[in-house]
Structure formats: structure tokens, C-alpha cells
Design a protein around this nucleic acid. Structure first.
Lengths: 258, 258
DNA sequence: ATGACACAAAAGGTCTTACAAATTATCCTA
DNA sequence: TAGGATAATTTGTAAGACCTTTTGTGTCAT
């Protein structure tokens, strides 16, 4: 007998918890269930789905793991819908990095290019509020030159504001993940530099960031190219300053062992 | 009585399933449990953790949701460790996009800049194997100019190979997510163009990608700047060709409704 | 001997029931 | 009216039984 040419779909029998998860997920994705809404109690859900409570609970665990719901105990407790937010994608990314799947070299590289992207798009899309926020941060940036601890926080603030100004959620997402993780590494390196170098370095960073802000606001992409290159160099110089025998030709190679 | 100035950590009582999840996660993250390893059966885990089977099952559902294990039924079934891979971060990102949290405009923008990053880094880090693969794909690219269906697949292949040549896992990850999702949108637009325009367009794309490949291989970042700009323009032109009343000044605005 | 079939064993999937713990609302009392 | 005990609601947990799927094994007939 010849074999049939028709192809069959895999006859997978779905778990009850998967079906329940799917149904609730759909309602969240479609917007029928909005952020803040409260799901029925486990027992009620079990009734509605004609399933047992353990099955419902497994589904709730899955939804919770994906940051789609938050669960509280007690009277008026239960599952509260969290909507689908950027946060749901951030956690797994963060894990990849902290676990070491992504090396510091890769992280640092991507950060630089991500910043560049943010700046480009910010130059195109920023609003007046964005501009005001950036300038306000830059003002504080200048005042914190002699306080590296504080500067580290403000610097992160700046990069996040730049990302926000791009009005691109992928930029915002990646900046949140990448810049936050890079920040620690970066300022750790800086803090190991000689005192007077640190001040000089901070001064330099301030001027660069200040110019970036103005270039973004007037939409001068030409100037941004060189400014972002300089910013990238600052970053590399700081991070590689850790290494005694610095091979400046390939600044990233040093990071691999961090 | 004055209030104490000390701050307390939130006294959260952890769920049993959370503790079990955490313990297994640690062993996977630390490498003690490697890809392919098989966890003990649910009943045995329950014994070891001194917890009930439902609690263990809830933990397994969470691990499964994070792609950390795969579960099979039957004799010799059970949970098989999948390790922490890029894949675990891809799914949530994909969802953000398909669900509409990320708009087509943002997606298209980020794709362009991501490609640029890949090309830059590829110029610096590519190996001989990478170069060979890129050239091989380009060869097939040229042969498929009259077959848009096939070209779409090859084009995606090219962008993934370019990402691989960057030797940066964040680039690879983002390319996988962003380019794959963009590809459909992109070639849908192209297929709606007049027949002879399509060929001309494909020819143009081929030449551009071909030049990018050579610029990457010789490490000519100067040339890459203009080439990638052209590539970006190609992309926008194709996608915006859908719109009848095209406002070329802001090519992206049309995409928002797609 | 060999192949087909039946049965057994292992493991996940599910349900039921019961109780514990947490949290909030309510009501009662001082 | 304020404070505290109490009740009600809801999640957290456990235990046990049974079903279903899958694979291994052994037996029987050819």
C-alpha cells in the first residue's frame, strides 16, 4: 500500500491547565480582561471550566510566571490581571545576562549600539516634555560631577530618558535591561580609577551627554554620529581601565573575563 | 514612641511551589543540571522536598513555562532539562509584538537599527566561516530574483547569518525576533507592487545586500554606513508602497495601522 | 526461533476532599 | 466611638485514588 500524501496535525492531547491558561491568556491579550481586573476565585474558575482546583491552580502559576497576573491571599484576594507589559519580556532577558549566557563583552557592545539607536530616534521623535526632562537631568548631571555615587544614578536616568524620547518601546525595553545591568559594571570600573581622573572623567562625560542632549533637541543627526562614538569610547576606556595590560586595539576582549 | 528608623524586608511567606521552583532553577543556572538531564519523577520530587505532589506539579508548570524543562508522559517520561537558551527570552518578546504592545512602526525602526548594529559588529568579528556562509547566501539571493517567494526566505537567512557573524548573542536574539516578524509584513507589501517593479526591487535589494556582505568582509565600516542607510530606505519604500496617499515625510506613520 | 499480541509497570494527568493560613469585613463591647 | 474578637472569604497545602499514556516484557501461536 502506498503511503498517504496527506499530512496530519500532531494529535497532542492538551493538558487541562494549558487549556485554562490559553483561555485566560486570550482574554487578557484581546483586552477583554484589563489591568486591575480581578479573576473569579479558584473554586469559581474550577466550576466555570468544569475542572478541578489543582488544574486551575497550575494554570494560575503559569500566568503568574509570565507576569500576567498577581495573586493575593485572604478575603478579596485572588488573581489580579497585570496586562501584558514590557516587564514580561525583561525578566527572561535579564536572566540570560546574569546567568552568563550573554557575556559582558556582548552586553557592552549592544549597549553602545542601543544608545546610538535611541539617540537617532529621539532626534526624530522627541516631544517638548522629553526635551525638558533631558535638560533637567543634564542640569543635575553637572552638579553631581564630584559625587560619582550620585552621578551613576543620574547617568542611568539620562539613558532611560533618552530611550523614552525615542518613543520606541523596543528601545525602552532594551535600554532598561541592558543599561541597568551595564551601569553597575561601568561605575565599578570608574570607582577604581585615581581620584583626580574620576573627576576629569565625570566632567568629560557630562559635556558629552550635554552635547548629545542638545543635538537630539535640534535634530542634528550628523553631530550625533561623532558624539555617540565619543560616548562609546568613554565607556570602553572606563571599563578597560581595569585591566593592567590594556590592549586598546580590541577593547572588548578584556571584558570577557569580568 | 518614636518610629524606628530601621527598615525591614517584606516578610513574605513563600509558596512551596516557589521554593521548589527556585531550588531547581538554581541547579539549572549553576550548571549542576545540564540540558538533557532527567529530573526525578513527581512522586520522588515530592518525597525529596517533603512536599505534596500538587506543589511539585505547580513548580514544574512554572519551569515549563520558562522553557527550562520539557515534560513527557509515560514510562521513561518526566521532566527533561532544557537549559537556559536564547529561546526563553524570545517568546515573551514575540508576544509583545504580536499582541500589539509594540507597533509596526517601532518594530520596523528597531529592525533597521538592529541590522546596522549587526553589520558593524560583523565587520569586526566575522570569521572565515561566516564570510563563506554570507557569500553562499548571496549567491542564492542572486538566483532567486525572479522568485519573490523564495527570495523572502533567503533574505531572512541573510539577516540571520549577518547577526551570527556579529558574534553577539543579543544581536542574534533580537534579529531572530524582530527580523522574522518583520519579514512577513515586508514581503506582503512587496507582493502587492506591480510585477516589473518587484523584479527591479529584488535586483536592487540583491545588489545592496551583496555590497554589504563585501563591506563586512573587508571591514569597511565607512561604506557600511551608506549601505545600511540605503537598506533602511529600501525597507521603508517597500512597506510604505502599500499606502495610496503616501506621506513620504513620515514613512512610518502608515505602518501604525497595519 | 520469531513475530504478534497481551499484560504489567512506570510516570504524568486529574479529581475529590479536607484542612491550614492569611486577610478583610463585621459586629460587639467597653 | 474606638478597639478588639470573630466570622467569612480565599489562597495554600496535603493525601489518596484513579485514569491515561507509553514502554518494556513475556507468552503464545505459527
Amino acid at each position: 500500500m502506498d503511503e498517504l500524501k496527506v499530512s496530519f496535525a500532531p494529535a497532542t492531547t492538551q493538558r487541562a491547565s494549558d487549556v485554562i491558561y490559553q483561555q485566560i491568556y486570550e482574554k487578557i491579550a484581546s483586552g477583554e480582561l484589563k489591568t486591575g481586573d480581578r479573576l473569579p476565585s479558584e473554586r469559581e474558575l474550577a466550576d466555570q471550566f468544569h475542572r478541578s482546583r489543582p488544574s486551575v491552580r497550575e494554570a494560575l502559576r503559569m500566568l503568574q510566571q509570565n507576569k500576567l497576573i498577581k495573586i493575593a491571599v485572604g478575603v478579596n484576594g485572588g488573581a489580579i490581571v497585570q496586562g501584558i507589559s514590557l516587564e514580561s519580556a525583561e525578566q527572561p532577558l535579564r536572566e540570560l545576562i546574569t546567568i552568563g549566557v550573554i557575556s559582558p563583552r556582548e552586553l557592552a557592545e549592544y549597549r553602545t549600539h542601543n544608545d546610538r539607536t535611541c539617540a537617532y530616534l529621539a532626534a526624530q521623535y522627541h516631544t517638548q516634555e522629553d526635551a525638558a526632562l533631558l535638560r533637567e537631568i543634564i542640569a543635575r548631571y553637572g552638579e553631581a560631577i564630584y559625587d560619582s555615587e550620585r552621578l551613576a544614578v543620574i547617568d542611568l536616568e539620562f539613558h532611560k530618558a533618552l530611550a523614552k524620547s525615542s518613543h520606541n518601546k523596543l528601545c525602552i525595553l532594551m535600554t532598561d535591561v541592558v543599561s541597568t545591568l551595564c551601569a553597575r559594571m561601568f561605575w565599578d570600573s570608574v570607582s577604581k580609577m585615581p581620584e583626580k581622573d574620576i573627576i576629569q572623567f565625570n566632567q568629560f562625560a557630562f559635556e558629552n551627554h550635554s552635547q548629545i542632549t542638545e543635538a537630539v533637541i535640534v535634530g542634528d543627526t550628523e553631530k550625533l554620529v561623532s558624539l555617540m562614538n565619543t560616548a562609546g569610547d568613554i565607556f570602553f576606556k572606563a571599563v578597560t581601565s581595569l585591566k593592567k595590560t590594556a590592549h586598546l586595539s580590541s577593547p572588548f576582549s578584556d571584558l570577557t573575563s569580568l
